[in-house]
Design a protein around this nucleic acid. Structure first.
Lengths: 183, 183
DNA sequence: CTCAGATCGGTACAAATGTACTAGAAAGTG
DNA sequence: CACTTTCTAGTACATTTGTACCGATCTGAG
């Protein structure tokens, strides 16, 4: 079996993190056994030992990213709109390369059924995180869709750029949903 | 210079389309000079002659896709909500691989500044297409964001799946914006 | 301690890839 | 017509990649 000892498990995690760093700096094409091994400062054979194929490497990295993201979202304090905007802004622009890398992994999930579940988990954790500020009701799902769109637009076009603008965008989204629900 | 004759221009276009087909079937990693040349039924040297690097290949393909998409959106009849749902549903599920391929190209634009402009164009053409059904006003942008999110969710999770469900989702989005605008 | 299985690190090799080169065909231009 | 430029098509080569292999070392259970 693979990775049954404590040291083995640690190395496996090291390699998963290395995949993400490689992804951040060079994109999907840069993820090779050699690049990941070099990034993790381990010999090539270690990468091939723990992850037989490139696919294993990517799947494993997505699962780890999802895990981290779910944990992050779980401990998020999204009660106030401003706080949420700050978190959102920080997540996208604080480490844009990292955010893009995560979306690249999620895009992989579109093509591979084995990743579908992880993508779903990521998606639901985002919805759970924003749930406290989204008024429940018929149009709650609209708010989730709009916030998804907002994140994508921030990643894509770099706008809205400032925390203030993000706050304004969030306020518009929530207000539109709120008024419709109470109507 | 490259591609100054009619035949040369035709071959260039052939190759661009081949890039998209390769992208559809095999993803970003499958786009190589050889694969594209084989797909276009031209010798390897033709691919390297017209597109010196893989990057040129992808950039050029994105520009062509954008061009097609803008043309498609321009001739779209989005006056009725049901028609829009049918178009949206057909675009995503009619050729899901193609839709995913286009988004993969657009994701490339996140990393390369040279593609930013093309991505912006694509984005704006989508907004222009849905403009007729989105009531202008303060919250119009929210609808655009939500529809972006809706498209992404369809690509990602395959839901909403039926035309009826897409119609319902669109109706919820538009209703929420409309009521807020008139409030 | 003993030892079987897990892990390590190095090396080798076939396949695929980007890229360069050359000679010739075709096309446009005076 | 000549002749310059664009284009074609085949080939060759260095590099990078996935992958397999082997002996040495470490680890935990009995």
């Amino acid at each position: 079996m693979v990775a049954t000892t404590a040291k083995g498990e640690a190395r496996r995690t090291e390699l998963q993190d290395a995949v993400i760093r490689v992804l951040e700096s060079g994109g999907l094409g840069a993820v090779t056994h050699r690049a990941v091994a070099a990034e993790a400062r381990v010999p090539l054979a270690a990468a091939t030992y723990y992850f037989a194929s490139i696919d294993d490497l990517l799947v494993s990295a997505l699962l780890r990213v999802t895990e981290q993201q779910v944990a992050l979202f779980a401990h998020l304090d999204c009660r106030s709109l401003t706080d949420t905007a700050i978190v959102l802004h920080g997540w996208v622009y604080g480490s844009r390369a990292s955010a893009i890398a995560q979306y690249e992994l999620l895009f992989l999930a579109m093509r591979r059924d084995s990743l579908r579940e992880a993508a779903d988990l990521w998606y639901r954790s985002l919805e759970g995180a924003i749930a406290p500020i989204v008024p429940s009701g018929r149009y709650a799902r609209v708010a989730a869709l709009a916030i998804d769109g907002l994140i994508l637009r921030m990643l894509w076009r770099g706008e809205p750029a400032s925390v203030g603008e993000v706050t304004a965008a969030l306020r518009d989204i929530l207000r539109s949903v709120h008024r419709s629900n109470s109507a």
